[in-house]
Computed example of a mutant assay.
Amino acid sequence: MSTSTGLLVLVAALWGAGAGALLPRPAYRFSVPDEEGWRDRCPAGHPIAGWLGRARCGRCAAGTPPYGPGAPRLAVATALVCAALAAATDTRPELGVWLLLAPVGVLLTVVDFRVRRLPNPLTLTLAVAAPALLGLVALVPEHAGDWPTALWATLALGAGYYVLWLINPGGMGFGDVKLAFGAGAVLGWYGWSTVMLGAFAGFLFGALYGWALVILRRTGRNTAIPFGPFLIGGAFVGLLIGAYAA
Rank of each mutant, 00 (worst) to 15 (best):
P24G: 10
L126K: 00
G58Q: 11
C60S: 10
V177T: 06
Y161R: 00
G184F: 10
F230T: 07
L107R: 07
T219E: 15
G220H: 15
C60I: 11
T219Y: 07
A180W: 02
I232P: 00
L179Y: 10
G96N: 09
L80R: 02
V128M: 13
A159V: 03
W192N: 02
R217C: 03
G173A: 02
I241Y: 14
I167D: 01
T64L: 10
L208A: 14
A183Y: 00
R117I: 11
G16Q: 02
L157P: 08
G145L: 11
A87S: 06
G220V: 04
V237Y: 12
L197G: 08
Y209V: 12
Y28G: 01
L134T: 15
A71C: 07
F230C: 13
G70N: 03
P69K: 11
G37Q: 06
D40G: 14
S2T: 14
L133V: 13
L99A: 03
R221Q: 02
C60N: 11
L23C: 09
F205G: 08
A84R: 08
G210L: 05
A62V: 06
V195Q: 01
A243H: 08
A13T: 00
P93R: 08
A199Y: 11
G58W: 09
E142N: 13
L74S: 03
F236T: 10
G202Q: 06
A102C: 14
P229M: 11
G16K: 00
I48E: 10
G198E: 13
G202I: 11
K178V: 08
L95E: 01
C57E: 02
L7Q: 05
Y67V: 01
L7S: 01
S31Q: 14
Y161G: 02
V81I: 07
A86R: 09
R59L: 15
R56P: 06
V177Q: 07
V163R: 04
W165M: 03
R221W: 10
A127T: 04
A17D: 04
L179C: 11
I225M: 12
H46C: 08
W51T: 13
G198M: 10
D176M: 03
F30M: 15
Y209P: 06
G18E: 09
P26S: 11
T123F: 04
A27K: 06
E35W: 09
C82S: 12
L139M: 14
L239E: 13
L108A: 04
S31F: 15
L80Q: 00
K178D: 01
A75G: 08
P226W: 14
P148M: 03
